[in-house]
Write a protein that binds this DNA or RNA. Structure first.
Lengths: 131, 131
DNA sequence: ATATGAGCTAGAGCCGACTCTAGGTCAAGT
DNA sequence: ACTTGACCTAGAGTCGGCTCTAGCTCATAT
């Protein structure tokens, strides 16, 4: 059994994932949780360690620009279980490509910026030499 | 003399830079052009080759997440000419750091995604073997 | 008993960076 | 003469991803 129930409050999950409590509620509404979040007797959310793990994956994907609808779709597929591996694969490959494209752009920018920094550093060095 | 006046229309600049004509007008309003764009007798914008060059730099910076206000500031400094090299340097170093941070996140995501793709590929391969 | 703090829902608001619309000018082609 | 197409301005609208507010319920500490 993989029932790792550590019974975390939304605040604790926020702390662990770096997401705000607002964002966590928002993510739930958006269907971005592998298994529906439980509630205690007072209606408060009760998260498990596995939710934290899933949310951590999601933050990595989000930070790399994967759009919410795709994350939601991926979440649905995971929730459904077996038998949809090729769709999951397709989503991940799309993301993989998105990431490599961004990398290219960042590299381009880094080259440009490094070059310009070099130029400006030289100017400053020459100015100092003039003193 | 560096007056490279090729007299380009906004449409031609859009084509060359990949920006929309809307975006070009927006950028002008935002002060994102090294030298103020000229107008012809009918009030139409007339760009030079150097504007295209500058806009190209800007798109690279934008694509790497440099915010408009910083691009505007950088543009102002370039417009002012000499004597503000260290502020330019500071802006570029900020951008350099922003870019490397993004790279880290993308790398993290790429690792995760590549790992998961591997897992799913194995599953598919096993399924095929079962046939 | 009451104040504090964490949580709840539904829904409004915000921010950045465009994008689009309305209503107009102008030059060239048919 | 008139249509087409590229351009103009001012300003409104859009979209994604949160973020915040109002008004509420609880449990715990003083």
């Amino acid at each position: 059994m993989t029932a790792v129930e550590s019974n975390l409050s939304i605040g604790q999950v926020a702390e662990r994932t770096g997401l705000s409590v607002h964002a966590l509620r928002f993510y739930e509404r958006e269907g971005i949780l592998a298994n529906p979040v439980g509630r205690d007797s007072a209606g408060r959310r009760v998260y498990g360690e596995d939710d934290v793990d899933w949310l951590t994956v999601c933050t990595v994907l989000r930070a790399a620009g994967m759009p919410m609808p795709e994350i939601r779709r991926y979440t649905e597929l995971v929730r459904q279980g077996e038998g949809n591996v090729s769709e999951r694969l397709a989503l991940l490959r799309t993301q993989q490509q998105r990431v490599t494209e961004q990398m290219d752009q960042l590299t381009k920018c880094l080259d440009l910026v490094a070059y310009k920094i070099g130029v400006y550093e030289d100017i400053l060095a020459d100015d100092d030499a003039d003193d």
